[in-house]
């Protein structure tokens, strides 16, 4: 190994980070190279000097503890706050997505005619109402021998239907 390559490993040698083989190689070189010996001893001295800078800390805990807020650390919340939701919703991505989805929905309702029309629901209601009324009068017929009652019932159904139609159309 060249002098230069050995030199680049002196730091790792100082920290005992080398394999035994590399270590032995460096030690063999150190026996012959004053420059590397000097560098290593400077590294070692600076390290010791650095270590001596370390000293007892002032009473940090005594100074900090009275200042700790009672509120404590910021907790993780399961649900976002109203403000967080507002900010999330008005991001360009969320807002844009919402706008596009709304536009598609509107298009589908208007042009694909997916929305139930008022006629359909009225028809359904009227037919159901008629069927129910006719059915109930017929079951009454079965218990009643007078034919007149049956005719009367039919009239009632028609009147009911007319009345409901007026109410529905707001007339």
């Amino acid at each position: 190994m060249s002098h230069k390559r050995i030199q680049n490993q002196l730091s790792a040698y100082l920290d005992d980070q080398l394999s035994p083989e590399n270590r032995a190689r460096i030690e063999a070189h150190l026996n012959t190279c004053d420059e590397c010996v000097e560098m290593l001893s400077d590294f070692r001295r600076n390290r010791q000097c650095f270590g001596a800078l370390k000293h007892e800390a002032p009473p940090i805990a005594d100074l900090v503890l009275p200042q700790l807020s009672d509120r404590g650390p910021v907790r993780r919340r399961l649900l976002p706050s109203a403000e967080e939701f507002r900010r999330w919703f008005f991001r360009p991505v969320t807002g844009g997505t919402f706008a596009v989805v709304s536009a598609c929905l509107l298009f589908a309702l208007v042009y694909l005619n997916l929305t139930p029309t008022s006629d359909d629901s009225l028809d359904l209601y009227l037919s159901e109402h008629t069927r129910y009324s006719v059915y109930s009068t017929r079951s009454e017929d079965a218990n009643d021998s007078i034919d007149l009652n049956g005719a009367q019932s039919t009239t009632n159904v028609e009147e009911d239907t007319d009345f409901l139609l007026e109410v529905f159309l707001g007339e």
């Binding site: 800078l53 370390k54 800390a57 805990a61 503890l65």
Partner: peptide
């Protein structure tokens, strides 16, 4: 804090 104060300070 007691545990780490010297490390953090140094």
């Amino acid at each position: 804090i007691l545990h780490y104060q010297h490390w953090v300070y140094n």
